[in-house]
Structures are given as C-alpha cells and as structure tokens.
Simulated scan of single mutants.
Amino acid sequence: MRAALGLLALLAMPGYAGWGWEAALEVNSAHGPAIFPHLESANRQGVAAAGGAVAVVWEDNRSGAPRCYAAIKPATAAVFQPERALSDGECYEPVVAPLGQGRFLAAWEEAGRVHARVLPDGPPLRLSAGDAAQVTLATGNGNIHAAWAEQAGAHRRIVVAALALDGNRLALARVQPVESGLPADGQAWPALAVSGSGGVTVAWEDRRAHHTVPMASRGDAGLAFAEPLRITDQASGGMNGLGAGLGAMRPKLATWKQGTVAVWLDKRDFLSGYDVYAAFDTGSGPFSPNLRVQDSFGDSLVQWHASVVADDTRLTAVWDDARDGTSDVWLANWEGSGFSDNVAVPAASGPGDQSDPVAALDERGRLHLVWLDRRADGTRVRYARAQWK
C-alpha cells in the first residue's frame, strides 16, 4: 500500500487549462437507418495517429453482412480518404495501431481466426492457430505485439505474440500463452501496453473466480509472463449471499511515465450500474488502490465504453454516459492525486446520442477522438482532434 501511494505522488503533475478542440470530421461515407457502425473492440483501439496521419477502423453491415473498414487521413489532407474493406469476408472487432511514416497496423476477427495486415496495402497474416477472437495490438520503441483470446480446451485463454515487419509483410516472431495450463474458466477482451524496455503488460477479463475480474500479467521482452494478479482491489465474494462477486469488465491499458495505467468498467456500486475506475501498475506487487474516474455528477447513473490514453506528460480517460439526458462523450484528466471534474467533448455532446468513444495520443501530445453520432437517418463515425492549451 505504501509503495502504491508513493507511486501516485510521483505521478503528480501541474494543472493545465484543458483540451482545445478543432471542428469535427465525418469518417464513414455509408449511412442509413439500417446501417449500423460498431466501434467495439478489445482495448478500445479504433483510432491511431502518428506523423500527422490518422487511421480509423470500424465494422458495419452496409453490404448486408458484418465487414470491417479502414479510413485514413494523410498528414496533408483536410478530410479522410474513402474507406476500404480490411478483408474479403465477414469481419468483426477491428483494431489499429501506428507504425510511423503514414503506415498503420490493423487486426480483426474473420472466420473464427484473428488476422493482421499493414495499412494501406500489406497482405493479411493469420495470427491464431485455432478458434480465436478479440484481437488487440500494441506498438512502440520498434516493437509490435498482438494479443487475443484463443480456444484452449473448454475455454479461451489469452495469447500474446511478437510480430516482425519486413516492408509491408508481417510475420509471427513468437507466440506465447500468458498461462501455459488450460484455463479453468473463460478469459476474454485482452488489452496490451508496451514499455520502453520492450516488456509487455497484458490485461483481460477473467472468470476463474466465477465472476468477471480484470486481471493482468507483466511480461519481459521474450514474452515470459509473471503470475497473473488482480487489477481490482475488490475481493471476490457474494453480496448478501448472492453471486460469486461484483462484476468488472473491459480493461484498457496505456503506457504512462514508463509504467502502465488500467481503466475499466466496475459494478462495485451495483445500484447505479457500471462506473469508470482506474489503477496504476506499481511495477511489482499489486496495482495501486483503485480510483474512481467519473465525478459525483455521474455517480448515480451508468457509464459505458471507458478508455484511457497517456504519455509522459498527461493522462486522459474518456467514456460515455447520459447525465445530461442523452448519451454524451465525457473526459477526465489526471491531476496528480485524482481525476479532474468531468468535461463533455463539445462536438460529441448535446442533443442526440453520441457514444462509443475511442481515443489516441500522437507523438506531439494531441488527442484524437472518434465516436458514434446516432441520428434518425443513420449513424455517423465522427472524428475530432484536440491540442492541450
């Protein structure tokens, strides 16, 4: 506990005015009352930015079946280029990560396997040997990693891979389950973060305690993983004799000051539904004491689609909730010992239904946000960029 509290003090940073937002752009070209875009993916990784370029990936049913699409806005362009399909078949839960020099890495689920390819024109590579889903990616410091949930016996377990890149061609350099034994219950929705030393932290939803618990494992550059540990500081056990424990789901990781921060949805206040919680990786031993992210104005209602982005300067969490009567996108900034009062994103709030935010920071510290804007005539995938003022 003392080490964890010391870490929180170390993370303290001076206050800033906040994010200044540019005008929003539309990403998808196909809309209609019967076309439904989705931004749901492991680690909420639907947008990536580097070198001034931005890539967005999503899934929609415009063709009559689920297909994955990618749209890129080059550094010199004012708008997104027309989207392109990631694969030839039905496709689910795409993710994207930056590679630099206007290139990106995308991954997705197709035909019961997970695949990846370099954007804009690299050939696809099948990542999983067996039935798998919920792939995610992490890139940085010359390292490329992927993680997914792959069938192992009666349940799925989390697998992590190191990828090699030769031009536009990917190859599997190493594939390693986080735990070598068969899982006792389901593992799902992995998240990845890569450290400056090449180490990897992976988090996931775990049901070995017969309820959903966010767990994590630290791995070295060779993908040798330590014993998993709980991110949540809530013990398992039923409430008034009911259930095996409180629910928590969809962990998201980001690299922060050479460490890792986790954000997830947590139902410890079960009367109001899911809340957004965060914890810092202390480097050894347990994660830090858990911190609530949303402020008191959001405490009495449910939060959804939580994410976090971070760099060596700042940390921002985003999510959606309906505290103002309709679903809006909200954010909170880390202020040294807790999170700031919540702020609605200007273009992603107000009348109507704005939800499902995904976010990324680029190397210049700019925040890139994508969300769904639902209207009677169809749903738009929208994008906006912000600079810290």
Rank of each mutant, 00 (worst) to 15 (best):
A75T: 05
A244M: 12
A209K: 11
Q45Y: 14
D166S: 15
G219T: 08
A42V: 04
R157Y: 00
P74F: 14
N290T: 07
A203Q: 05
T255L: 09
H155L: 03
A4Y: 06
R113D: 12
R292Y: 02
L369Q: 10
A235R: 15
N43T: 03
R117H: 04
A70Q: 13
T316N: 15
A216W: 04
W58H: 10
L315W: 01
V308T: 07
T136R: 04
A133S: 12
D299M: 03
A188W: 05
V202S: 08
P33M: 07
W334T: 09
R156M: 00
S236I: 00
A71N: 11
R126Q: 15
G378M: 08
P98E: 11
G298E: 04
D295R: 05
V345N: 12
G285V: 04
G102P: 13
F80C: 08
L8S: 01
T76K: 05
W21G: 11
R103V: 04
V56C: 02
R126V: 14
A146T: 03
E335D: 09
P228Y: 03
Q45E: 15
R323N: 05
S29A: 13
A49W: 06
S217P: 12
P98T: 08
L105H: 04
V96S: 10
A344R: 13
L119Q: 13
L367T: 07
V276P: 03
V118Y: 12
R366F: 05
A332P: 08
A152P: 00
E83M: 14
R156P: 00
R385K: 13
A133L: 10
T282W: 04
V79R: 08
T212L: 07
F104G: 09
G259T: 09
P351E: 11
A49F: 02
L301G: 14
S284P: 03
D220E: 12
Y383L: 08
A77V: 00
S307H: 12
K257W: 01
A262I: 04
H305N: 15
S217Q: 09
A235E: 15
V329L: 06
M239G: 11
A216I: 02
K73D: 04
V114G: 07
L367N: 12
L10T: 10
G336R: 07
P74N: 14
D220M: 05
A71R: 06
F270P: 00
S284C: 05
A154L: 07
Q101G: 15
Q45T: 14
A129Y: 00
S355T: 12
D275I: 00
L265R: 14
D166I: 00
A48L: 12
G247N: 10
F287K: 02
P94W: 11
A50I: 07
N240I: 01
Y274N: 04
V79F: 03
L242D: 09
P177G: 01
S41L: 05
A317P: 03
D206W: 02
D373L: 06
A49C: 13
L192Y: 06
A376Q: 13
R218T: 01
G298F: 07
